[in-house]
Design a protein around this nucleic acid. Structure first.
Lengths: 334, 334
DNA sequence: AATCAAAATGTAAACGTTTAGACTTTAATC
DNA sequence: GATTAAAGTCTAAACGTTTACATTTTGATT
């Protein structure tokens, strides 16, 4: 693989001159530039980014840390970051690590070792403390889908609680009174917040949630099916379900119909996230849109320092509100 | 950011010794190792991978080139590569580039500049010639989802034609005789090959495809819907459809049911790819499994030289055969 | 022809590592 | 206590760039 020296020698100039040509530097004569360019092409020269990064202390890369790529939600996140990377002619460094606290730490360390100065991090396992430490070490680190007071202006997050409220308001406005919930069995913040908001809104309307109308399971299609069976087994009526995410909601609808319930005629179902799936299901799913790609793009810009970090409104960081997407799985109580 | 020199100075040893500690090298005393380790932790030292890559000429990274991440198919591909990267403690370098020939070239160049020595490439736009050139320049380059004779043993691909045959055999075995096809409007090899295999198989059984039973549209949900409308408009009967991919197939089913046809009772539908979606649709989709993640893992291992490249059977490179997944959208002709 | 500023080009140090090879210490053997 | 092999440690060059600064060339002005 040809180096800058090879090019310099063959062109009869110094490496400095070649470097200037490569970087479109200013002080180089036209004929020289042409000659060097020709030789570069001839030799198939590609500058060594590692050497460059070493001396300039800039890595020309944009990092992103997510649990894994198979989940379309995270794929969208990564895609948002990638979009910004491409816009800025930077290389995307993707680090996956979810299974454990240790692997999240590893994922960030990997990027640190490559001196990646702008990183969008999605982390659920690392402690607030450790994230704050990383953030102090890396000025261009931003945190997505999580809020930590101490680094508020580096946090891009969704107001899950408000999402729960919006779902509740929607179902109430359709005249439903006997509500049920299907949640994720994993004790992370997201489900807790969503259902907190949901319940609070019910309370405000003088309604409440029966204990056996709140069930939990795996946050996927099967989990939704199992959870719905539990709900049906409890033998008390419900006319609407707020489900933790779209995959579970689709599982729920499937089980409901297998048991003779029409959606939305007999039971309205509302999901959360608005993943691709929700537009492919029948009936098409009413859900809350989680603008993850948009958030990821914003996060990436912020990490790159492209955004004059706007005074964060009352120390809330950069908060997004989910938007109700009415489709076919909810309807007026009949 | 602390460097190896800072650590060396503080520990009162040479950088060579610190380097040996960092790399778990052999010749270093126990007390020294302990002291250096302590100081590294205290200083929050992270070795600079760029400097390392420069001197060792090894980048500890695994590259992957795909069109984009939002398509679950490519996300799975990337995920397979990432899995191998993690297993080998390497960083994934993801380069997207699909829109144009130029951006595919860019994507590969990016990786080249980072001296990434193992790359899994998905490319549809670059010419055979150019890919061969890249492959010669980068010994660890492998090509996925495409076959080029000259670099056969670096190609990992799916036999699309055989897939078409399998689909045809399946539908014929169910007793269907009036077959229709929905294809992608994009003139790349994949659809052409799939339908070539399909038609050949029909011919062998003495059947043929009516011209207006072959329609094309965008390879997505809407495209499937539109294509099906065209099919229905032609007003000739068909009892089974072979659809280019799962997304289109789901759109097709949706339109069929809207028009009073039951799937699979009135019409059997078979898709291709076996994406997540196909398990979520109702009826669950019968389709051909495209083992892309498995192929990607294999490709990554091959790129890393972890696999003693098995003598490729009759110069076909590494060929995979799609597998029929019978679910609910096809059934015996009633 | 001499002068000079501007433009073009070159020199050399620096970036943070790794790793031969040289040197020093340790401890076992006589 | 001398000898020696092994174990531990250090020195210094190298990797491929960029870039301040120095030097040379160019061409206009006198």
């Amino acid at each position: 693989m040809a180096t800058i020296k090879d090019v310099a020698k063959k062109a009869g100039v110094s490496t400095a001159t070649v470097s200037r040509v490569v970087n479109n530097g200013p002080k180089v004569g036209d004929k020289t530039r042409a000659r060097v360019l020709a030789i570069m092409a001839q030799l198939g020269y590609h500058p060594n980014e590692n050497a460059r990064a070493l001396v300039t202390k800039k890595s020309q890369s944009l990092g992103v840390v997510i649990p894994d790529l198979t989940d379309p939600f995270f794929a969208s996140l990564a895609n948002g970051v990638d979009k910004i990377a491409r816009q800025n002619n930077m290389q995307l460094l993707l680090s996956t690590g979810s299974i454990s606290e240790e692997s999240e730490r590893q994922a960030i360390s990997f990027l640190l070792e490559r001196r990646c100065e702008s990183i969008v991090v999605h982390s659920k396992k690392l402690s607030d403390q450790e994230i704050i430490e990383f953030a102090n070490k890396i000025p261009g680190l931003v945190l997505i889908d999580r809020f930590i007071q101490e680094i508020a202006d580096k946090c891009i997050w969704l107001d899950n609680e408000e999402g729960g409220k919006i779902a509740a308001r929607h179902l109430l406005s359709l005249g439903h009174k006997q509500l049920a919930c299907i949640s994720s069995r994993y004790q992370i913040d997201d489900p807790a917040l969503r259902f907190k908001g949901f319940k609070n809104e019910l309370t405000e309307s003088g309604l409440s949630l029966l204990a056996h109308h709140f069930v939990e399971d795996e946050p996927n299609l099967q989990g939704g099916e199992v959870a719905t069976q539990k709900l049906l087994a409890s033998d008390t009526k419900f006319d609407a379900i707020f489900v933790y995410n779209d995959a579970m909601a689709i599982g729920a609808i499937s089980t409901l119909e297998d048991n003779g319930f029409k959606v939305p005629l007999d039971v309205s179902v509302i999901g959360f996230d608005d993943v691709l799936l929700s537009r492919y299901s029948r009936p098409k799913l009413t859900t809350l849109h989680y603008p993850i790609e948009e958030m990821a793009e914003f996060a990436a810009q912020l990490a790159l320092g492209k955004i004059a970090a706007p005074a964060t409104e009352q120390g809330n960081g950069h908060k997004y509100i989910p938007r109700l997407v009415k489709r076919e799985s909810t309807s007026l109580k009949t």
